[in-house]
Design a protein around this nucleic acid. Structure first.
Lengths: 218, 218
DNA sequence: CGGCGTGATTTGTGATCACATGAGCGGATG
DNA sequence: CATCCGCTCATGTGATCACAAATCACGCCG
């Protein structure tokens, strides 16, 4: 028996530090925390019913990924990104995700495109409901579903790290963004996938990734 | 007074977990450990004169960066990369470092080029001495000196993460590589910098980054 | 009324310990 | 002689504690 095989309830039996890590990670990536929010090890431990030790490990891990900021005295906050930093992370997203999409293209069959369309309708629903967290979550789900086909785990992990770093800021950004129109770039991505049009796909992904961050220039 | 200001002896007064982290990090990045080597928390603690707690934090942090592999039971080893993984990491290096070099180009003045030439002569010396660790160290120093000019800290951090993941494998790779000729691609990089030739620079960086990893295809 | 020093308290750090578990080794068995 | 089973010990996990340092608030002085 492979001890890694945990058919269901994967998270239940996992080590405490891992449960805490995962919970905090999705919370941050989905933009459920505001930039600059302070965390304490005892507070985290209390929330999850564990001691400081696993809380510390989870925090360290997240800090190593850039998802949390550790002051010189060890205080923990979610990062407050400068505009420069945001632009750099957007450039990274473009770089990585264009490559991932390009690698996924030859492997993208009809089943994937159907799935992307389903997810995309959920995205549109979140936009119409002005649900920022739901929008971020489904939007990332869309991108991840596509990039999984690229068969490039290290590259995907890096892209997710960038998402993680942008998480708290994204929430604040999309909060002031008053769109209710459905995501046009996602449709362009799907169309390019259908047509097997690689240049078009690269352009569409690049636009989709950088558009949301463009408004901060003002 | 800024408490962050530690003019000299920065590492001495730093927290224990940070000292351990940094020591292990450079050890791994410079290829001073072989792939698949096992580490124990008590062993690390003993080596650095600290308890298991800081050792655990350092290990967790390195594992989060992909520099160490944690088995499902928590055992710690340096990663043994598959050829697929190595190729993917090489592609990531190409992607990131070409961009970094490109961004550094307009900011590259004569002082930088002189410095690169100095470092490059050290690289050549390491090659002639067949000093694998010294070669890796000076080679990374060359690349970092260039990329620092790009003013893109997040991107540089990602590139360093890739170096870290490749560290143990690089040692094994360059060990079986019996070259004694000086690094030709570095000269091309310097020449392109002097000429302000961006396409040439991108090509030279891409070649330099991918050439060493090409021999594993056989 | 405002700036600043001082003390109380919150907070991270690191050591130690008890516990569960998994790895590795040795021996028994076919 | 190979294989499988069992045990033992090494190893990671998580809780608790003592300590130091930083933060915050209060009150004092200008």
């Amino acid at each position: 028996m492979n001890p890694n095989a945990r058919p269901a309830q994967e998270a239940a039996s996992a080590p405490a530090h891992d449960r805490v890590y995962r919970a905090l990670r999705t919370r941050i990536m989905h933009g459920e925390v505001t930039p600059g929010a302070a965390l304490t090890l005892r507070g985290i431990g209390g929330e999850f019913g564990v001691s400081m030790t696993p809380a510390r490990e989870a925090v360290r891990r997240l800090a190593a990924e850039g998802a949390l900021f550790l002051s010189s005295s060890g205080r923990v906050t979610t990062p407050e990104l400068t505009n420069e930093r945001i632009e750099e992370l957007a450039a990274l997203r473009a770089l990585l995700e264009v490559e991932l999409a390009s690698r996924a293209l030859p492997r993208a069959h009809m089943a994937l495109i159907d799935r992307l369309q389903t997810i995309n309708s959920n995205v549109a629903e979140m936009v119409s409901k002005r649900d920022a967290v739901g929008y971020i979550r489904t939007n990332l789900e869309f991108h991840r579903a596509l990039y999984l086909r690229a068969q490039a785990p290290a590259m995907l992990a890096m892209a997710e790290t960038v998402w993680l770093q942008l998480g708290p800021t994204m929430r604040a950004l999309y909060g002031r963004l008053r769109r209710t129109d459905p995501p046009q770039n996602h449709r362009l991505i799907i169309a390019a996938l259908k047509a097997g049009d690689e240049p078009g796909l690269r352009l569409a992904v690049r636009s989709d990734v950088t558009q949301g961050l463009r408004l901060l220039a003002g």
